[in-house]
Amino acid sequence: METAFYVLAAVTVAGAVAAMALPRLVHCTLCLAVAFVGLAGHFLLLGAEFVSFAQVLVYVGAVAILVVFAMLLTRSADAPPAWVVSRPGLLGVGVAVLVFGCLAATVAGSGLAGREAPPAPEVTVKALGERLMAEYVVPLEVVGLLLTAALIGAVILALEDRAKGGT
């Protein structure tokens, strides 16, 4: 279990760093998919199989493809590759390192260090569905409404403005 965690953590962090640091956008998207797959592996390791599959379906399957489509529509793939070596870039990295330092110090000082996992609970899709249909039915409906509104809004935003003769 320990080795699996460290291998998956290395894959996830390497994928995330590459997704944020590589100069070409297509490579960034591929590395982002690798990081998402690594996170899905972590969810499997933690015993949340359904979330893991949802992660693969939604992030690797939908969000990464959506990013590729946006790249295609904005002709970003043949944009000149850009490294981040500018001064504001270094400032941003410094801020991120500071944030990581604060978070790591908080985690180290929180007394959670020796926490061991309780015995693994039984997570069946049936139990999840029963929860979603009973206690969490209102949030479920709200998320459904939000997704519908967001997708209609996305279509309207990306729709070509034909009234002005199309720009």
Binding site: T12, V13, A16, H42, G92, V93, L103
Partner: peptide, 15 residues
């Protein structure tokens, strides 16, 4: 690990 991922994402979004 989660803090590291958050910091990497933040660095990317800022730079």
């Amino acid at each position: 690990l989660s803090a590291a991922l958050f910091a990497i994402g933040l660095a990317g979004a800022l730079t």
